[in-house]
Design a protein around this nucleic acid. Sequence first.
DNA 1: CAGATACTGTACTGTTTTGGTCCTGTATAT
DNA 2: ATATACAGGACCAAAACAGTACAGTATCTG
Lengths: 163, 163
Amino acid sequence: MLRVNKLTDYAVVVLCDLLRGQALRSAADLSASSGVPLPTVSKILKQLTKAEILQSVRGANGGYGFARRPEVISMTEVIESLEGPIAVTGCVEDSGECCALTDQCPMSGHWNAVNTAIRQSLNDVRLIDMLPESRFMEPTDLVGSIVARHTLALQAQEGEPNR
Amino acid sequence: MLRVNKLTDYAVVVLCDLLRGQALRSAADLSASSGVPLPTVSKILKQLTKAEILQSVRGANGGYGFARRPEVISMTEVIESLEGPIAVTGCVEDSGECCALTDQCPMSGHWNAVNTAIRQSLNDVRLIDMLPESRFMEPTDLVGSIVARHTLALQAQEGEPNR
DNA sequence: CAGATACTGTACTGTTTTGGTCCTGTATAT
DNA sequence: ATATACAGGACCAAAACAGTACAGTATCTG
Ligand code: FES
Ligand code: FES
């Protein structure tokens, strides 16, 4: 049904959890507060880190935090980091394979239309759009406050507001 | 990777095949000309018929044809007919279930944002957009000619240009 | 009416993907 | 040193999927 992985689902839960709270939270901590079992949370966090959505700090008092300001993170990135490039079929370019009927296939690459359509719309949904505003203050202040808290807490280290 | 079923993939191939050719084609015929094995094609056609995208005629000289003019068929319909309602997670309304963490879930239903985003963009892609124009004439004439051929061939029977 | 054609519905099975867990290794703080 | 935490990868059970098969029904041809 055009489903997103369960892991991706969890990822958003965890990320939202991380969005309000200390800048650095351990996997165990996030597991407890989100209800997702530790090994699973761990797996997710590792992948998000590799995708440079999160950053990690090892050792005692270590944990995970956002690698950049959360409001620049789109759902495309979150989804792609958990399940690889968005490619509705094998026939979409840069996804290697083509379907078994390559030769006679009447529409080489036309799935791209569908694909880019989806990707496009996903780009417009940001991670913070998944947050229930109710738990914060006025929507208008929402972004500002999160950013403030996190960018402060993210003990400097960089900026790269890429994209 | 947010993949669509392989069956859905095939469905589009077959539908495109059906888009150029007689109005009524048997499953065997479509199988031969598309390269997709008969039992599989059959399965697909049955589902498309149930979704009222195609219509079927039983008996000798029977077969499948479009149930309505092809240019009003969106990819949303095609996809949904093959894999049920588009619902990226179990948490989307009218898809029954909610994820295991229902109670503490920090964003009840916020996947809806993603969901409608996808559905919206999919609505803008029509089946005929999947056709390789190259096999026809000028893109400008494309829609018109297909429509002409098929509406003629569709031996009247109705109109319902719904949506 | 007989026989052939072609769709309908459903059930079954092998394969692939996914979800979830665990274990070994490495980095950091106290 | 030792405890804390992340990193990476291997592993297995469960679920979803792809593909096939078959018994049933409708319709056309002659
Ligand atoms: S082989 Fe690429 S669309 Fe079918
Ligand atoms: S329980 Fe519905 S979003 Fe998690």
